[in-house]
Nucleic acid binder design. Structure first.
Lengths: 189, 189
DNA sequence: GTCTATAAATCGATAGAC
DNA sequence: GTCTATCGATTTATAGAC
């Protein structure tokens, strides 16, 4: 059992509040109240509200970057790489579904780290796109609009945070395989 | 060419600002500045910031409700109904991609209209779910997890607002058919 | 590490002149 | 229909006692 620092506790509680109302609508007093202390006391552990948001978003973005870097250099088929990407999203979102809300909806409120975040996101999308394009080139995937395929998969995977917390009986590996089947093979008979 | 009332102009500009930074981070002074007037002058046309948000979200939610009501009572196949739902989302989002951001991300800041919005959303999802379940029952669709199918389609369709404005050469009917193919038939060969 | 107190800025909204 | 002026509440953040 890891001992949580006070800073980690603040970030954890803020993550929950940010998902409920969004970063801009949550006040330092809201965070303090949820911690059971006064707002001024927060500043002994974090330097600003902005720092809390940065911690949440950048940590997640870097997890995705690490994940796709591993997938990219594996020697598996394109389809298996796509399956691994689905697994990556399901796993990260299962462990931090609250934080995924900030990553998706509050990234524009980043300040110093905004540029860095945008680079990570762009690189991730480019790696994902390349896996799809190679799948088309080597005839594993249908020869249709790669951009629509990318958009469709990424939209579903990025929305997992809305859905996962409502599935009390969540089994990540079953969800990954169900989702892979639907995303890759469609739903029609 | 329709003449826009001042109120409609305010709502239109607010919609753009809300998409950029979210409802909570946009001030009445921001809206006024974009209109070229002072904040106090806004109150001659709207009664509160809240009223602007309600107008944006409820109008869109009702469009979706009307759309699926028509689709539901058509005598077409389940697959054709799903195609119509894709078209519905592409059309509404093409006409108001900015407003779709508020619908997706700022609905929780509704006050008096929150309950009404939640009912419209729940009913919509229930209609959508029923179309999928009937498709499975009559063997048009694969006999797998209906909830995952619903989630996957809905996530992609709800995210269209992020993507559509970046496709300068957008052809709604081509997008609808590309998207239907990917969502229904998958991407694998 | 938490508190009280408060600074300095900004918020939504109103009053009243033009 | 827009303005200036301003109210009262609320915001992030700091100072300094304990």
């Amino acid at each position: 059992m890891k001992l949580e620092t006070r800073k980690e506790q603040i970030i954890k509680i803020s993550t929950i509040l940010f998902k409920e109302k969004g970063f801009s609508a949550v006040t330092m007093r809201d965070i303090a109240k949820a911690m059971g202390i006064k707002a001024a006391s927060l500043y002994n552990h974090i330097s600003s509200k902005q720092e809390i948001l940065s911690n949440i978003i950048i940590a997640l973005a870097e997890e995705f970057t690490e994940g796709i870097t591993q997938i990219k250099k594996a020697s598996s088929s394109s389809v298996d790489k796509l399956n691994s990407i689905v697994e990556l999203h399901v796993n990260i979102t299962s462990n931090n579904s609250f934080g995924m809300a900030s990553l998706n909806n509050d990234w524009m409120h980043l300040e110093e780290k905004l540029e860095y975040y945008l680079k990570l996101r762009l690189d991730y999308e480019q790696d994902f796109r390349q896996i799809i394009e190679r799948g088309i080139a080597n005839h594993e995937l249908q020869d249709s609009n790669a951009e629509v395929m990318l958009f469709s998969m990424l939209s579903t995977l990025r929305s997992l945070y809305i859905w996962i917390p409502n599935k009390e009986d969540l089994n990540p590996s079953k969800l990954s395989s169900d989702l892979s089947r639907v995303l890759l093979k469609g739903i029609i008979k």
